[in-house]
Design a protein around this nucleic acid. Structure first.
Length: 259
DNA sequence: CCCTATGTTCCCAA
DNA sequence: CTTGGGAACATAGG
């Protein structure tokens, strides 16, 4: 269930322990992940985030691309791994063990040529190309919330942060994307940047089971203003927060101050 | 048994 | 061909 801030947290923590380290053992436990050539003795040169995915660049010039989807988690163990359920992949380094834990088995792993597009790595944090987004939005009648979840728009936004961003920007989630004004898109961009950056500083949002590389909870759940608050008073205007379904996903919004 | 779940992709209809 | 909606994927928890 990790979104951009959670994946960014993992990437930063992974860099501390596996960059410049060699793979000692690479063991796929769940063959649904696929078949991989021997990666023993390959060295990790870089860990980069692409949307909600993580790319591990290898000294061979190729890379491993991991997407955790709904229930994937990464866990670092300096010692021999404890008995754990749902372990799908074990990668041993000189410094410790990296485990992929994934109850629902939706996570995907691929072995591919490295993505050289460093531009996309920092988006949408460094800069949001507002003109480009408005251009795409012009032709789209889908609810703006579903539009934000489209990974071609601002890669990395997921269900929790889409709700938080639209609440911060005072925009109703069911509004057709094509109807937003330039001023409203500026509010979305500003809210995206501040909300995602704070979530990264807080090492992610732990509502049910997000834990970082060391098994620690994040702190951003204490900063959520709308997600999960159905029936409570809106923290901005006091009206009752409602939950509805938009694009097949649970969506929280204030019917009074999100226009 | 019911419903829900921080994600993506496929199928189908308009 | 495009757009958008819903089901599917697989499992756990309330």
């Amino acid at each position: 269930m990790p979104e951009l801030p959670e994946v960014e947290t993992l990437c930063r923590q992974l860099r501390q322990v596996i960059v410049d380290r060699r793979i000692r053992d690479f063991r796929v436990i769940d063959d649904k992940l696929g078949v991989f050539p021997s990666l023993i003795d390959r060295r990790i040169t870089t860990v980069q985030r692409l949307g909600k995915g993580m790319e591990f660049l290898l000294d061979s010039g190729l890379s491993l691309f991991l997407h955790l989807r709904m229930s994937g988690k990464l866990l670092w163990r300096p010692d021999y791994p404890l008995p754990l359920s749902h372990v799908r992949l074990v990668v041993q380094f000189e410094t410790g063990w990296l485990l992929l834990i994934d109850p629902r088995r939706f996570a995907t792993l691929s072995y591919r040529t490295a993505n050289p597009d460093v531009e996309s790595v920092e988006l949408p944090l460094a800069a949001v190309d507002l003109a480009a987004i408005q251009d795409i939005a012009k032709k789209r009648r889908i609810p703006v919330k579903a539009f934000l979840l489209d990974q071609h728009v601002m890669a990395g936004i997921g269900n929790i942060y889409a709700c938080e961003i639209l609440h911060a920007a005072s925009i109703a989630p069911e509004r057709p994307a094509c109807d937003l004004s330039a001023a409203e898109w500026r509010r979305v961009a500003k809210a995206s940047s501040s909300i995602l950056k704070r979530a990264i500083r807080c090492r992610g949002t732990t509502i049910s089971d997000w834990h970082d590389l060391y098994g620690k909870k994040g702190e951003n759940q204490h900063h959520l203003k709308i997600y999960g608050r159905a029936g409570e008073a809106c923290m901005r205007c006091g009206a009752e927060v409602i939950r509805k379904r938009i694009g097949g996903r649970g969506t929280y919004a204030c019917p009074a101050c999100q226009k």
